[in-house]
């Protein structure tokens, strides 16, 4: 396992497969905690309101129930939600954060309890200063509670399947007329270069018009340097169209 001081934690399975977790830093975690603190206040207020009715029977009993309920909510909130939602609280769910075992194994109940109880130290002297500083220093962005419980907090960005329909399905691609040059292109282009071209095509609508023109000009120029197609294949098409053709050649092998 690689625990290099980066924002990711890489794990190698016995099958030799690597996968990585993107570690969450102190800022998103603090934001998550703010949401959780607000959630605890709301839950406690609701319970408080409900227990208010007990005051009709006994004021002493109602006061005791309020004290106990607040204690249980403030201590139990993190434990219950992280256990029930497999490492997530309301704040973590909203910010796509998740608590995980440091070795990528299933999160245990004892780990959830320990990391939540050690908040008592992490929150010292105020606003999670100890926890935040430890998180900054730690190679795995762990606060003391995470360290003792063998847990990490990861950020899971929204993952969606790429919309490959944006490629040239069913449309004419002038590069297909030169299969030997297509083969050379596939041979000489690395997966990383191909990935850049694919991302440029898939995310082109997110770009400013001027940036879009400049980006596709640079990318097209790069691929033209790798393999030079005859002018019949490239004349009259824009740089963006050229890159789309290249991506089509690289990612959608002609049947």
């Amino acid at each position: 396992m690689n625990s290099a001081k980066t924002a990711t934690l890489k794990i190698q399975t016995p099958e030799g497969i690597f996968f990585s977790f993107q570690l969450a830093g102190p800022i998103p975690r603090f934001m998550g905690w703010t949401i959780d603190a607000a959630s605890i206040s709301v839950i406690a207020s609701i319970i408080n309101g409900l227990l208010g009715f007990m005051g009709i029977v006994s004021r002493d009993l109602a006061s005791a129930a309020t004290v106990l309920a607040y204690f249980l909510v403030s201590i139990g909130y993190g434990i219950v939600t992280e256990w029930y939602w497999q490492g997530q609280t309301i704040g973590k769910r909203l910010l796509r954060l998740r608590v995980m075992d440091v070795q990528g194994l299933r999160l245990r109940f004892s780990q959830v309890v320990i990391r939540n109880l050690l908040r008592f130290v992490d929150s010292l002297p105020a606003f999670y200063m100890v926890g935040g500083l430890t998180c900054l220093i730690s190679g795995r962005a762990q606060r003391l509670g995470d360290f003792a419980a063998n847990t990490i907090v990861v950020w899971n960005p929204k993952i969606s399947e790429p919309d490959l329909s944006q490629l040239l399905e069913g449309k004419y691609n002038s590069l297909h007329d030169y299969p030997h040059l297509e083969a050379r292109l596939r041979q000489h282009v690395s997966p990383q270069q191909a990935g850049i071209a694919l991302q440029a095509v898939l995310r082109r609508d997110e770009l400013e018009p001027q940036s879009r023109i400049e980006l596709f000009r640079d990318v097209a120029l790069h691929f033209k340097r790798i393999v030079s197609f005859p002018s019949e294949a490239t004349d009259g098409i824009s740089d963006e169209q050229y890159v789309r053709n290249v991506v089509d050649v690289l990612f959608c092998t002609k049947k």
Partner: peptide, 11 residues
């Protein structure tokens, strides 16, 4: 090894 498509890789 053969592609750098990040979304499917992450999935």
């Amino acid at each position: 090894t053969y592609s750098s498509e990040p979304n499917i890789r992450r999935y």
